[in-house]
């Protein structure tokens, strides 16, 4: 008897904290429609266009020397800039979360600064500072170490646009964890490094992985900043996104979309890993990612 009563009322009266069923269905349908048109369709289009002339044509275009050198360059840039940003992120989070010092709020603001600067403007800044006709750049070129239109410039530009990713992820997590565990380890005689490696690092590993994942996705896909500093020299300073632009502008659609499909595949892997982290290790990520 008692179980029949609630179902009966639930059918006739909806809870006051819910919208009308018709409104709910309409909202869900609208949201899905917009996401299909704006998100899912472009993703599918990349793979459809890449395979427009069959698997063989797609794979052949990836084996082209320009494509291979672009893939290699993108991997190199990510392999340098992501670990450097990870080290920076850990150092910044350690200083900010474990110590109280003056100017902390300013430091956090400055770390976030790259998010409000256009990647093209970031590239422009690099050119102004390190370009051949700047003071520092001219000297470096004379020493045989050019930065702009070469690998170091691409790495610096990539680091600029991916700068806040790891730090932003680690700072809230480390602030929340406090410093009691580290203080206990130190009291028991552990050295600073040992405390970091055996106490702090295991506590922040999933958050670190999360930040590195997003940082890497952005590093491999960065276009605007790299377009400005790389000089777009085919086979030398053209990363994957730059090569995609060149191929697309030359109407080599299959080649452009094949490279694009590789990056889209990477994006899907990134999203999958990120979602797994959010489901499995939510308690060890920044609070905003817990759902």
């Amino acid at each position: 008897m008692s179980s029949a009563y609630p179902t009966l009322t639930a059918r006739r009266f909806r809870p006051v904290t819910q919208e009308a069923p018709l409104v709910r269905v309409a909202l869900i349908a609208f949201v899905i429609l917009v996401l299909v048109v704006l998100l899912f369709a472009p993703l599918i289009a990349v793979f459809v266009e890449a395979l427009a002339k069959g698997w063989l044509a797609a794979i052949e275009s990836l084996a082209h020397p320009d494509a291979r050198s672009a893939i290699w360059l993108t991997l190199t840039v990510a392999a340098i800039s992501v670990p450097l940003n990870a080290v920076f992120g850990i150092a910044a989070a350690w200083a900010i979360a474990k110590f109280d010092f003056r100017g902390k709020a300013l430091l956090i603001t400055l770390i976030d600064l790259p998010f409000s600067v256009s990647p093209v403007v970031a590239g422009l800044c690099m050119v102004l500072l390190f370009g051949a006709n700047s003071l520092m750049g001219g000297w470096l070129v004379a020493q045989g170490f050019p930065i702009v239109f070469a690998l170091p410039g691409i790495v610096l530009a990539t680091m600029f646009v991916t700068f806040p990713f790891v730090a932003r992820e680690l700072i809230p997590v480390m602030i929340e964890q406090g410093r009691a565990e580290e203080e206990a380890a130190l009291t028991l005689g552990a050295s600073g490094w040992r405390t970091f490696l055996t106490v702090t690092l295991p506590n922040i590993r999933w958050a670190l992985l999360y930040g590195v994942l997003l940082c890497n996705a952005r590093a491999m896909g960065e276009f605007g900043a790299v377009a400005v500093v790389s000089g777009k020299i085919r086979g030398q300073t053209a990363t994957m996104p730059i090569t995609i632009e060149m191929l697309y502008n030359e109407y080599l659609s299959v080649a452009a979309f094949s490279l694009a499909a590789v990056l889209a595949g990477l994006a899907l892997v990134t999203l999958t890993l990120k979602t797994l982290l959010e489901w499995r290790h939510a308690d060890q990520l920044a609070a905003t990612h817990r759902h």
Binding site: L39, L214, A217, G221, E222, I242, A260, L263, T270
Partner: peptide
Amino acid sequence: LPFALPTAV
């Protein structure tokens, strides 16, 4: 997805 998919793509 827009965070993970490169802008050129």
